[in-house]
Design a protein around this nucleic acid. Structure first.
Lengths: 206, 206
DNA sequence: AGCAGTTCTTGAACATGTTCAATAATGTCG
DNA sequence: CGACATTATTGAACATGTTCAAGAACTGCT
């Protein structure tokens, strides 16, 4: 795996062949396939690693922060930081994950465990924070935050700025806005719309 | 191209080979590459066709409808209808388009003309409608609507229901909500948030 | 008609992801 | 330790997307 990571970074995904990976790892081509069933799965292993490290980093953030905005900001920032070493081939991962029938797709049934774990993190952002929400919205909020996170990831994948500076700036800009929006949902004036949004999120869910 | 479409529908994208396409079209394999520089570009041709037909259908809708909701609903419905024959391999198109470096990506520089054309349609939805918006939001609204359309496309790609019934239902649910939200933006109470949203959209833009 | 330039066609070759039968190495149990 | 089961390794073969040199066909001009 270390061999693959080096090559991916050095040459990019496309110009890294399985033959190259096998050679760098000192094994035969067929043997490489014993450990990773496909080139795609190689990349998936990196993504899994990001998820793991993010989960660990999230614990720190959640132990430290008490405001909703702070917790959310911390989580998103942590993700961007942790994922950074893999940005070079994130686009390829994104491509592989984009296929609806792929087990790698964030929306697929195979990814449900990973998705639920991620959503649980966002639930913790909520639960340990100062934010008060209507019960129906609170139930859907983790998933909404997860979707927001997916949007950030998407932006990050496309972000060619140094150290994905634009993504960081975007997060810094988006979090206070989400915070403000969330607080506004308790206003009686917007109650109907909030219910509609909740209904829509439920319709989106498989 | 007709040969390819038949095969894609019959066998799916993966099990359709360029050799099969060439044979069905009665030409050599190399000749197939003379006309389409890659398998991906074959699929792209179908997507282009959807765009064209959508543009034509949009004219009808926009000539007929005067309310914002009606126009938006009409446009989104038209897209789902027109794209339907290609749903079988939409996932593969989506995969190809998902790669940031791909010229097919909706966010890429190569796709700017197509994106601008699409956004222009949504601008027309706005311009010919009864909806009044603050100037700053009105300037960003076509792009927001385009992003919403991308969300619908994403949902459609994943939608395995007969005739993508769920997507149609989602559109029917989302449009009135967007309409309501848009009308609410003129309330003094939400003015600050609207400005923040506008700022965020601008930050997202390349 | 002849010629030059352009377009179309072809099939062999290539590149790379993947498979798999055969074999070697390792692990477990009596 | 030996027998058997399981895991790891290998290299040739395969599948499929793609390339490209060579040649045929077409077009336009003199």
């Amino acid at each position: 795996m270390a061999a693959a990571l080096d090559l991916f970074r050095e040459r990019g995904y496309d110009r890294t062949t399985m033959r190259g990976v096998a050679e760098a790892a000192g094994v035969s081509l067929g043997n490489a396939y014993y450990y990773f069933s496909s080139k795609e799965h190689l990349v998936q292993a990196f993504y899994d690693r990001v998820q793991e490290e993010h989960r660990a980093a999230a614990e720190d953030v959640l132990a430290r922060e008490t405001t909703f905005a702070g917790r959310l900001q911390g989580l998103l920032d942590a993700w961007v930081r942790i994922a950074q070493p893999y940005h070079e081939f994130a686009g390829k991962f994104f491509k592989n994950a984009a296929e609806p029938t792929s087990p790698l797709s964030p929306f697929s049934e195979d990814s449900r465990p990973a998705r639920d774990a991620s959503t649980a993190l966002f639930r913790e952002v909520l639960d340990g924070s100062d934010l008060k929400l209507a019960p129906a919205l609170r139930a859907e909020m983790p998933e909404l935050l997860w979707l927001m996170h997916m949007g950030v990831v998407l932006f990050w994948v496309y972000d060619g700025s140094p150290d994905q500076r634009r993504t960081r700036a975007l997060v810094a800009q988006a979090v206070p806005l989400v915070d403000k929006l969330a607080r506004m949902t308790r206003l009686p004036l917007v109650r109907g719309v909030v219910d509609d949004v909740v209904g829509l999120v439920r319709a989106v869910r498989p």
